[in-house]
Design a protein around this nucleic acid. Sequence first.
DNA 1: TCAGCTATTATAACCAGGTACTAACAGTAT
DNA 2: ATACTGTTAGTACCTGGTTATAATAGCTGA
Lengths: 205, 205
Amino acid sequence: MVRTIERLPKRERHQLLTSLIEDNPFITDQELTRQLKVSIQTVRLDRLELGIPELRERMKLMAERSYDPVRSLPLHEIIGDIVDMQLDHSGISIFEIKEEHVFSRTGIARGHHVFAQANSLAVAVINDEIALTATADIRFVRQVKLGEKCIAKAYVRSISGGRSKAKVEVFSYVSDEMVFQGSFVIYRSAGESVIEGGMEGADRN
Amino acid sequence: MVRTIERLPKRERHQLLTSLIEDNPFITDQELTRQLKVSIQTVRLDRLELGIPELRERMKLMAERSYDPVRSLPLHEIIGDIVDMQLDHSGISIFEIKEEHVFSRTGIARGHHVFAQANSLAVAVINDEIALTATADIRFVRQVKLGEKCIAKAYVRSISGGRSKAKVEVFSYVSDEMVFQGSFVIYRSAGESVIEGGMEGADRN
DNA sequence: TCAGCTATTATAACCAGGTACTAACAGTAT
DNA sequence: ATACTGTTAGTACCTGGTTATAATAGCTGA
């Protein structure tokens, strides 16, 4: 038969359908019919097989996610992904600079995102129920730009003051080049009452 | 007639309807009918009068808002609301600590939010096309807790280094009590090329 | 007292964007 | 031939509405 050139095998069509919906969740089956050049039933069978819900369900899920005040914020716990962690000793996290972290005009990351990565890592590396940043001495060595991956390394330098203070140094790199350096003093509660003057609490079990 | 006790005058019903939808945007007219004890037609006329779109439109709007990568993030430009601004001299912003800024267990604000307010204010107060944080020396004096309003005051202390550097001090208060203090060095471009070592760019016209 | 008004309710037709099911047909494999 | 896969078609039904038209109740002013 004159198998039209357009027609894809099922597997490929499934992939295409998935990616079409992924980068436009607001697309209707009608539209998909047009783009995939198959009948609307096929589109629906495909969605069924792939477990992709109907348009309205997709919108509802998105709306619900954005309505949840906790999940809707990216800066909840630790900023960046932990890739290595030795409590009370050192830790490493990676944080990719995306559109939402930069100034649109310049493509340069806003400083507080780089700070947030370093700060949350410094707090996380302290093995204690509650850890709070007391002071920080930071330096932005060079700009970090859109798309760059920022690797923060934290080292616990000392635990002093009757175990109530720790000094943590954090260095952030973009491929071997240092972009940020910070020296943090973290207060820690040794299971006791909250220490005055801090700013961070770490939820940990 | 036995005007049922439940029935509200139109005005009050409108208010109630508005607030019902406000704190549960996922409610259907059917549900509203039950809660307001009027017919579904009345509910719909009310929505029409009040310009409240149907459930699906409401969900769509929410989904679209959360899908827009720019609008979906609260930390885009300046953190906190500017209440006073004298460029190259001083500025004040207010930032309310909400659920999303604190550790759930302790109710204490994460440090980088307080830092972000101070940092973005320090950058904003510099009257230049591009302003970048070079270094910061900061101190969290005491914790800031859920619900507290953080008032940051920035003062430009000096403009030196051939107009390419500015020193800005920021003090943050919760009702007269200082909670944060920071000393920032901001690089500025006097309309020239970008200076190395900075981290912030300010979009301004 | 009665027309005129607003507010409310009822009824029906219609819509988008589906689900669920049943059937038919083409091509391919066994 | 038979069975199986993939695709298309058609129908009934669903939710959560819209739009339009009409009927009813209650109050108001002259």
